[in-house]
């Protein structure tokens, strides 16, 4: 597999990258390359130029400050998976990152590249939606912050405007009594999510005070399962209550459920409650 010709520019800073994007219309940003390079090889993408932002130092790393976790866009999945801070304070993200692709892919792939690519079968979008992450983007008009819920607009489509670059993701660290998890039904070949469920459970006085559930993989963009969240709020986190709440997921899935030769739309709808239950159960365990 041989990619088509393109030019290559290496950006030393976000502003330089933004300038290059403007200068070369039809160019693509290159982060870890784990989504872009396969597309180039298959000649499904043919950018005029590739702008490498993978070396911008400011975009790397995980910092925790005042209850907020800031993850630089060029932080790799391996770094997310290995982070003890994330494991403690934002478990679903670390857990989901640990299940992306395989170790070599995780060493290259970045959270920013993954999220900006917005593949519906990707793991992180649903996780960020459930975690109510804020995404910082920088562009010609300066910086702005977007809710994860609004960032993902459809299959491979985000709220990023032309010449904007995703630079960081901010996530509220778990408070006491809060726990999160990611349950994934992985495709046996691609290992992408056929169904991915990110769940955040907040407990108070032995009951679920709030739950946030986002579904990915089976929908063009992650959806919040408000129907599940509603039913669980205020309930004890018993197996029965979790199962009952999870059973409500269908209502939140909407009309656009994906299907393919491995798992049809009907099947995904049928088993979605099981995966929601599993995500919630794990999150509830971590919340205790």
């Amino acid at each position: 597999m041989y990619a088509p010709e393109f030019d290559y520019y290496r950006a030393g800073s976000v502003s330089e990258a933004a300038g290059l994007l403007r200068k070369y219309p039809g160019s693509k940003l290159l982060a870890g390359g784990q989504s872009l390079i396969p597309l180039l090889k298959l000649r499904l993408a043919a950018p005029v130029a590739v702008i490498d932002i993978g070396r911008i130092r400011d975009l790397k790393g995980i910092t925790v400050k005042g209850g907020t976790i800031r993850v630089g866009a060029m932080t790799t999945h391996a770094e997310l998976a290995a982070s003890s801070e994330l494991a403690e304070q934002c478990h679903a993200l670390a857990q989901a990152a640990a299940g992306i692709g395989d170790p070599a892919v995780r060493n290259r792939g970045t959270i920013g590249g993954n999220v900006a690519h917005a593949d519906p079968a990707s793991d992180l979008p649903a996780v960020l939606v459930a975690l109510e992450a804020k995404l910082t983007v920088e562009g010609p008009d300066g910086k702005r912050t977007l809710d994860a819920g609004g960032f993902f607009q459809g299959m491979m489509t985000t709220a990023l405007k032309e010449h904007e670059i995703l630079t960081a993701i901010e996530i509220p660290a778990h408070s006491k009594g809060q726990g999160s998890a990611y349950a994934k039904f992985a495709h046996p070949a691609s290992r992408y999510a056929v169904i991915g469920v990110a769940a955040v459970v907040t407990t108070s006085g032995g009951k679920c005070s709030a739950a946030r559930v986002a579904i990915g993989g089976m929908v063009p963009r992650p959806v919040r399962a408000a129907s599940v969240e509603r039913v669980l709020a205020g309930q004890e986190l018993s197996a029965e209550n979790i199962a009952k709440a999870a059973g409500q997921v269908t209502e939140s899935l909407g009309n656009e459920v994906l299907g393919d030769i491995f798992a049809s739309e009907q099947y995904r709808r049928s088993v979605a409650p099981v995966w929601v239950k599993r995500g919630l159960t794990q999150a509830a365990e971590r919340a205790r």
Binding site: H187, P188, A189, S190, I261, F262
Partner: peptide
Amino acid sequence: LLTGSMLDYALPRADR
């Protein structure tokens, strides 16, 4: 051929 790549055609892997 809809199973035209290793992304679609599932070969046995160590972890399964």
